[in-house]
Design a protein around this nucleic acid. Structure first.
Lengths: 336, 336
DNA sequence: CTGAAAGCGCTTACAG
DNA sequence: CTGAAAGCGCTTACAG
């Protein structure tokens, strides 16, 4: 592989000059610049990133951290979408993406991850950070590396407005006349986003005179199967229910299946709502009413925020608006 | 940050010794080894990966390449699954994952990607390589970097047995008594996997006395919407059809929706099959009969193969068996 | 506007 | 079994 030195020789200048021309330092004769650029082409020079990283202290690498906790990260449909947003910004700025999926066991981060953070291999970190007790970004911040949290409460963070999402959902069902609403929830304090969502739902229901804690609830684990099981339980114990409010789309899909098995027509006999607006939500039968949390935007914003930090700025944390997506799975209470 | 030298001083040995102890070179007194390890702990030493990469020529980084061609890579549900398999192997071996999503325009790879490959930043590359004209791995192989293709025909590759998948699917429908089968296809030569699948379907149908080219076909683009549109066209022009064989799950989901809109009961009036077994396939109504191509296994195998190459071995390319998954969307022709 | 030289933090023959 | 020293390929004050 040709090195800087080869280019320097070819161009008849010093390696320092080549280096500076390539990094767009000003103050160069047009002649020198052209000479260098031509030489780069001639010898087919491509910078060695490890060398550059070692001497400059910058790697042009952003680590994206998706911690593995309860719900295996690879089954979370948001992951790919967030990644898409981050990727788009990074490629524009010429940064590369390093993927890290640390295991979090009893709140402890795995050793590999800790080492990686210490290794000096990244200029910044973006983490999916919705697990209250897993401080994925703590070692990053301690090391003084730029860090942006998606879904967490770090110094720099991007959050979807789950509170409003919850209110919108509750309001939507209330407006359709539902008063017998069952909730398919998940354990508390497992996901800060979901906790926010619950707060929003509570507020939305209260605005309509309903008290969340008085409604029938079943606790699932985000999976399709758990949604189906919860729906079965709820509908059996509370046949009067006309709506099932599910804390994510996958559980709603399970509920939809279960309703179908039980011969409950959706939405005529039973309305079902989800949360997330994953791709599959648009193509269930009937299509799912849900809330889109704009994960793509979150990815974009997080990356932009990180670059702002790297540029020495002090960006504001962002709250991203969510969007109620009304589709066929919800309808008037007592409809047909 | 503490460096090797700090550790050496603390332990009262040379940096060479520290380095060798850390890389598990043999021939060391137990005493030295312990002394060094203790010093590492005391000063909190973590190796600088850039420095290590520069001097050793190895980076401990594997690049995973998902080229963007027609179907935006981020909407391909296999991506995350393949990634999961690769990630598992890499974390076991202490390798990090670099994600690259090169754009391929008119068969040309983007410049960033080419530079990345030349940059010496990775020890090996695994590429999703199912686009016939996009030679993602060519620059990698030229540079002499270890490369494994998933879905392509490189020297080292991992392929799902799509041919058998096609045969199984055709056979399944034939056994159910279907003779009026419509095909929801995609343009040819866009994806080597799909081409293989078509060959298998052709063979399977022929074994039952049916000629693929005589069957009604509509051409989609892998998306849900295109599946719905194709189904509409086929069912209108060929009301006698009792089965729709779709080349992927998403189009099958679209077809399912369309059948529902048209009042065709699935599977009583119409059987619908997909391909891929994406997570959503299990929870459509009715659940989709499809073929699981074991993408997780493909990811695992690809990574293992890459490590074998890095270890100086010459592994065999692998063909991964697929699995027919019979669910509720297919049933006897003329059933009820 | 350009260059000589030190240095980034490791690894690796080569000696002993 | 251990160490001195060169070298990986860049960048960056510092001079001029």
């Amino acid at each position: 592989m040709p090195t800087l030195e080869d280019v320097a020789k070819k161009a008849g200048v010093s390696t320092a000059t080549v280096s500076k021309v390539l990094s767009n330092t000003p103050y160069f004769t047009e002649a020198t610049r052209l000479k260098v650029l031509q030489a780069v082409k001639d010898v087919g020079y491509v910078p060695n990133l490890a060398a550059r990283a070692l001497s400059s202290g910058r790697t042009q690498i952003i680590a994206v951290v998706f911690p593995h906790v309860y719900d295996p990260i690879f089954s979370d449909p948001r992951v790919l979408v967030v990644l898409e947003g981050i990727d788009a910004e990074c490629r524009q700025r010429g940064y590369n993406l390093l993927l890290s999926t640390p295991r979090v066991v009893e709140g402890e981060l795995d050793e590999n991850y800790l080492q990686l953070i210490q290794s000096g291999y990244m200029d910044g970190v973006i983490a999916l950070d919705h697990v209250p007790f897993a401080a994925v970004l703590e070692p990053v911040v301690n090391k003084g590396i730029a860090a942006v949290s998606i879904g967490g409460m770090a110094r720099y963070s991007v959050n979807s407005d789950h509170y409003s999402g919850g209110r919108l959902l509750a309001q939507h069902l209330l407006e359709l006349g539902h008063r017998n609403i069952g909730l398919i929830a998940v354990p508390e304090h497992i996901n800060v986003g979901t906790d926010e969502l619950m707060r929003g739902i509570r507020a939305g229901l209260r605005a309509g005179g309903l008290e969340l804690d008085c409604l029938p609830q079943a606790v699932g684990d985000y999976s399709i199967d758990s949604g189906a099981a919860c729906a079965a339980t709820l509908l059996e114990q509370h046949p009067e229910l006309t709506a099932l409010l599910c804390l994510n789309d996958r559980m709603a899909m399970g509920a939809l299946q279960q309703a179908h098995r039980l011969g409950r027509r959706v939405p005529a006999d039973l309305s079902i709502t989800g949360y997330d607006d994953i791709p599959a939500a648009a193509s269930t039968i009937p299509p799912l009413t849900t809330v889109n949390q704009q994960s793509l935007t979150a990815g974009h914003e997080a990356a932009r925020m990180l670059f702002d930090i790297l540029d020495g700025q002090t960006p504001e944390s962002k709250v991203i608006p969510v969007e109620l997506v009304v589709r066929g799975s919800s309808g008037p209470a007592g409809g047909q």
